[in-house]
Amino acid sequence: MLSRIGVKLAVGLLKLFALLPYGFVARLGDGLGWLLYQIPSRRRRIVHINLKLCFPEWSDERREEVAQKHFRHAIRSYVERSVQWFGSAKKLEKLIEVVSDVDLLDPDMPPTLLLGFHFVGIEAGSVFINYSLHRPCGSLYQPMSNPELEAVAKAARGRFDAELASRADSARIVLRWLRERKPVMLGADMDYGMRNSTFVPFFGVQACTLTAVGRFAKVGRAQVLPFIGEVLPNYKGYRLRVFKPWENYPTGDDEADARYMNAFLEEQILRMPEQYYWVHKRFKTRPPGEPGFY
């Protein structure tokens, strides 16, 4: 009962925030992130572990600076679910600029995998790329522990004609979507365990990395369009950046394809390291016999 009440209160607050000026909400989330960073926590510890693993050459001061900026971005991103989930299409159009290397309105777009990466702006990017395509899409999601919140999130993420399916049911559904020429959104840069994964380097550290993207692209004869949701400076909104299709991908070699994906992601992280989702246990699964980091 308390769980349901808590979800209702949280959703009600987000709907209220969606009516307020974006700049006010963004500053509120930023301030809350700064405040929570001052309190020692498990998530703050995870951020520091990840940054030390990926950037051992950085000074302690540099890692501290990026960690604090990231924590503020991460907390702010949850507060900004308000406009991302409940803001009108007109409001989103004013807040999100689109920079795309491909014509998103191309009526002859081939079967397409829209590969999103977990930067703090992924929610805004995912919702708006669906809107920008002006056609039905498919989208995979990771189930939540709270079913009430999951139902709210699914409704919000699918409001621009997206059909959502759980990752657990993905293979058959994704291939059907591709046959129907529905662009399919998915993310593959988190640690989901060893199933359908391989170990490849991520900033020089062996990371358990999904091989599903290459496999779906091969079987579905689909192009892969990477996209990133970036948070603009000075509380100006977001940029949806859609890159050109990956060339000579997939190769047919799962490990090579996973390496390619991680190398692309590394390049994007170096542009804005404070915006990548370091609060996630990216190196949770370790190769046999190797001790854990967290």
Rank of each mutant, 00 (worst) to 15 (best):
A10H: 00
V152E: 15
R271D: 09
V219L: 11
V7R: 03
G138P: 04
R215S: 10
Y276C: 04
A67S: 13
A222E: 07
R63M: 09
E64K: 11
G158T: 07
A162W: 00
V47C: 07
P226W: 07
R76K: 15
V47W: 03
D169V: 02
P288V: 08
G23Q: 14
S59V: 10
A258G: 02
L20Q: 01
K15M: 13
I46D: 00
V200T: 05
L19E: 08
G29C: 10
R181T: 09
G12P: 11
T209E: 05
E80L: 14
P107V: 12
H70T: 12
Y131S: 01
Y294R: 02
R286I: 10
K69R: 15
G121V: 01
K90E: 15
G23I: 03
M194D: 04
L210H: 12
H73D: 13
P21E: 12
R157E: 10
P250F: 01
I228P: 00
F119M: 08
E150V: 04
R282C: 04
W177P: 01
K69Q: 13
D106S: 13
S126L: 12
S170A: 15
L14W: 15
P111R: 14
G31D: 08
E274C: 04
F117V: 12
G214K: 02
L16Q: 08
N248Y: 03
G252A: 07
G204Q: 10
P288M: 09
P56Y: 11
V224W: 06
V242M: 03
H118K: 04
N50G: 08
R271Y: 06
D103T: 07
L14E: 06
A258V: 00
N234W: 12
E230V: 09
L105H: 09
V99G: 00
K90I: 09
G121F: 02
K94P: 05
D101N: 13
K244M: 05
A74Q: 08
P233E: 05
L178G: 00
R271V: 10
E180R: 14
W34G: 08
L104N: 04
R172D: 05
F128D: 08
A222S: 14
R195W: 00
A168P: 00
R27S: 10
A155P: 06
V11F: 11
L270F: 00
K281D: 14
K52L: 02
R239P: 04
Q84G: 00
A171I: 12
A168I: 03
D108M: 09
W177D: 06
K69S: 11
P233V: 07
F202Q: 01
Y131H: 15
R215T: 13
I75H: 02
S170P: 03
K8G: 14
S41G: 05
L14P: 05
N196V: 00
L95K: 12
M185E: 11
R239Y: 10
R239M: 12
I129E: 03
E180T: 02
E150Y: 07
W246A: 01
S100W: 05
G6E: 08
E93I: 02
E180D: 13
V79T: 11
Y277S: 12
L210I: 14
A263R: 14
W177C: 14
